[in-house]
Design a protein around this nucleic acid. Structure first.
Lengths: 114, 114
DNA sequence: CGGAATCCCGCGAGATACTG
DNA sequence: CAGTATCTCGCGGGATTCCG
């Protein structure tokens, strides 16, 4: 066979549009819910909760509740999540470097079509 | 600054959940609309059209219309799109290899929560 | 063949209020 | 603080039909 779990793999990495941003933030170390919320521009509480649940379900991060007052929940990449982040580094670097070119292409396209 | 276009970059690569699959298919060479549609499981005509438009707008692929009968439209990666696919290779390889682990984590999570 | 146009439904996601 | 719960609305996206 050529590349059997290709579609599944592609779907897994594109499952959630916030996943990459969350992984990036968690790459620097554990984060609390509110830290993630503040660090990710435009995400709502509800959607962040859902994204974190999905990633926890996929085994990419752990969710640890500290029963103190006030409550404290911290999220941290698992080895699996760390591996995915490592594998994504070239793409993240590319997207940072080439973003201006993409934005230029968009402006060009929009101008052409008015 | 540390990494300024990070959010923009992450959004650009997660903009469309079909993008990676389309890019993967186009990596092997130009494709016609119907070939892409058949090759991508579960995508509808409307959604494929929209995804291709978005990628064309981002400068990742070109759309070439051949005015013959019957009509013929072919899509092909630009150098920019090719660069993105190259940068995505480690992540694609990772997702293919680790997909079983992700699926196992999901099954485990679902079993635990019933 | 490769769309565009139209209709329409359901889920994604914002806002707000409430809890352990 | 870190969620759940509820209500609401918009638009993402399926099905179908028409066109060059």
């Amino acid at each position: 066979m050529t590349e059997p779990p290709r579609q599944g793999g592609c779907r897994a990495i594109a499952a959630n549009k916030w996943m990459m941003l969350i992984m990036y933030d968690l790459g620097a170390g554990p984060r609390r819910f509110t830290e993630l919320r503040r660090g990710i521009d435009g995400i709502s509480q509800r959607v962040l909760t859902a994204a974190l649940r999905g990633m926890e379900r996929d085994g990419l991060l752990t969710r640890t509740v500290h029963h103190v007052m006030p409550p404290h929940v911290s999220y941290e990449l698992t080895p699996l999540g760390r591996g995915m982040l490592d594998a994504a580094q070239p793409l993240l670097a590319w997207s940072s470097g080439e973003l201006p070119r993409i934005e230029a292409a968009r402006a060009d396209y929009d101008a052409r079509a008015q």
